[in-house]
Each structure stands twice: as C-alpha cells, then as structure tokens.
C-alpha cells in the first residue's frame, strides 16, 4: 500500500504515452471482447433453465465453431490476461478511502477493485474446471458435469459470488467506461448511465442466479 505523501512533480515534458494507451486498451478490452463474451456466456448458460437437452445441444454447437481455440485465445484469453494484469497494477497504485469519504461513487470505486479480484480468482477456477481440465483429461462438458460440480454447497456459493462479482464489475465498468471514452460528460448524463447500468446488473444477475439454481 503506497503512503499518502507525494513527491514533487518533475518538469520533463511528458512524452511517454504508454500509460494512456494501456488505460484505453484496458477499458476497451473490458467492454468489447470480455463484456460481450460474458453476456453471451450468461445467455448460453440460461438455456439450462429450459432443460439439460437444450443446454447440451448448445454446448455441442459452440464446440463445433471452426478454429474455436484460436478465437478463445485471441478474443478471450489475451484480453482477459491483459485486463487482469493491468487492473491489478491499478489497484496497487490507488489508495481507497471509502471509509472516510463515503460517497456512492467512491464506494463503487473500491468495489470495482474488490470484484475485479474475486472475478479473476473465480474465472481461473472456472476455466480450469470446465475448459482446460476437461480438455486435458478428455472429459465431455455437459449439463450433468456442471450439476455434479454445483452439488457441492461450497462450490455453489463460490459460483454465486463469482458470477455476481463479474456482473457487477461489468455493469459498473460500463458507467466508468462511458466516462473514459468521454461520452457521459456531465453529472446528469452520468446519473442516467448509472441507472441504466443498475438495470443491466439486476437483469443479468437475476438471470445468472436462476440459471445456477436450475442446475441443482
């Protein structure tokens, strides 16, 4: 944790823009490939609500996508790793103070960091148990494999926490992303954006929780 004292600014002309470019890529990676993929993934899982057969059919369809590993690596794994590593760096250089300044945005600022870390731990575990693990051992991923997994109450609670963290991180990330991209400039438009994102959170989280319960 950094101490709160700053050193004098130095006068050299700022020519290093890497931090700026990385911060924009961080936002972009979170919104586009990762955000879109997460929504798609949640929708796919929601098919479990309509029964095991419908769910298994969909998995088979997804696995039939040509060059699937290529897309998984370039559109999901690389953006994810970058987003996670840069995000962890960002949490290390900030000094959350929501205990003193209890403003809603400041609390969300802290939660964005907390949910980011929870999501990362969850995603690593999740990818291992349903993608890499089965890939290495040759197990088929199906409704029954997921059900067996979620039958363990600890894992179930871990899943609920992980999924809700990821959805919070995404919805709150849209509101801050709109600021990073200079779209919602004033307080009124930022308020509207926050309301819409709260709606997105409620809908996605509700859907995800119902999907998880349908596996039991």
């Amino acid at each position: 944790m950094p101490s709160n004292t700053v050193t004098q600014l130095n006068y050299t002309a700022s020519t290093r823009k890497s931090r700026f470019v990385l911060s924009r890529l961080h936002s972009l990676a979170g919104l586009l490939p990762l955000g879109i993929f997460m929504v798609e993934h949640l929708l796919s899982n929601a098919l479990a609500i309509f029964g095991a057969e419908r769910y298994n059919e969909h998995i088979a369809m997804l696995q039939a996508i040509p060059f699937l590993p290529l897309f998984e690596i370039t559109l999901i794994a690389i953006p994810l790793l970058f987003h996670a590593i840069y995000g962890i760096y960002l949490s290390f250089i900030s000094k959350p103070n929501a205990n003193v300044y209890k403003y809603q945005r400041n609390i969300y600022f802290m939660l964005q960091r907390v949910t980011g870390i929870i999501t990362l731990i969850f995603v690593i575990y999740h990818v291992w148990s349903f993608r890499l693990g089965p890939l290495l051992s040759g197990t088929e991923v199906s409704h029954s494999l997921v059900s067996e997994h979620l039958a363990n109450p600890f894992i179930f609670v871990f899943y609920i926490t992980g999924v809700i963290s990821a959805i919070f991180h995404f919805s709150n990330g849209i509101t801050t992303g709109l600021i990073t991209w200079g779209i919602t400039a004033g307080p009124a438009s930022q308020r509207v954006a926050r309301k819409i994102c709260t709606g997105v959170f409620v809908i996605l989280a509700g859907m995800a929780v119902v999907s998880l319960f349908s596996f039991l």
Partner: peptide, 22 residues
Amino acid sequence: LEVVIGEEGIANCGSSQNCVQV
C-alpha cells in the same frame, strides 16, 4: 493535452469522483 495523455495524466483517474464532492 500532451500532459493530459502523458504519464502523469488522466489515465491515472479511476472515476471515484471524490474530487468533485470535496
């Protein structure tokens, strides 16, 4: 704008919005 997009610039803001509150 060079300063804004530089090392010490806006990329360091995390949108906690405390500044406007205080």
